[in-house]
Amino acid sequence: MIEKRKSALVLVGHGSTLNPDSSAPTFQHADEIDRRGLFAEVYCTFWKQEPSLREVLRMVESDDIYVVPNFISEGYFTETIIPRELELTGPVTRRSGKVIKYCEPVGNDPRMIDLLLRRARDAAPGVPPEKTSLLIVGHGTSLNQKSAEAAHQQVRVIREKRLYAEVMEAYMEEPPFIADWRKNTSQKHVVVVPFFIADGLHSYQDIPVLLGIESARTAAASQQEIFRRNPYSLDGRELYYASAIGTEPLMADVILDTVVRFDRKHLYDLAA
């Protein structure tokens, strides 16, 4: 168990100006870590919500600050947006008597594989994996290759476990596209797990349209009575759509492990 009673934890989420659920997992995990009393302060900050990345460090009073991106992969946000907006110079930034420690995104944690598999199991209880296509869907972007690489890596590892008849990947903004799932999967049962942090705009509202289980963008998940009505029968296939993996309560521990990993990796930078 880590204890950082003199440090602050700043969790960075994407947030949304359209979907109130986008920031929910970031707040959820921050609340849990705060409840455990491990840090002097715990704050959330967002690209699209307040407090913004430009404001949050003013709120922090500790001199020792861990910044953890609650993002599913390394990529445009973790490599461009967050360092730029927080004016970071590298993994360790020293400024005005403060030390800002920039950790890896939570999606780098090795337990993501187990979380993805658990989500797949929970979404389709009793459905035999050996007769099922598992489709991991991510964002993907032309702005940074690493976004899709992270999902690709998960797919590769899960495929090697030989649990599912096939394990495929698909993306919103780069090929193979989510909308092509019918031709890119072969089994009657298709379990789709969003490799996303939140059941927000993309995962809850956009991807169901791309999959064809909704004809248009629905209201946000928190404004629906029922989260999903699995399975969806489409063209003779049974499709099961899971909740985003970032909403797992275990993610609070993943965030804490990300801090531990940072300390281990940057032991010498910090001693300097």
Partner: peptide
């Protein structure tokens, strides 16, 4: 309610 208003 008003994130960071006082600190700012």
């Amino acid at each position: 309610f008003y994130p960071g208003a006082i600190a700012t």
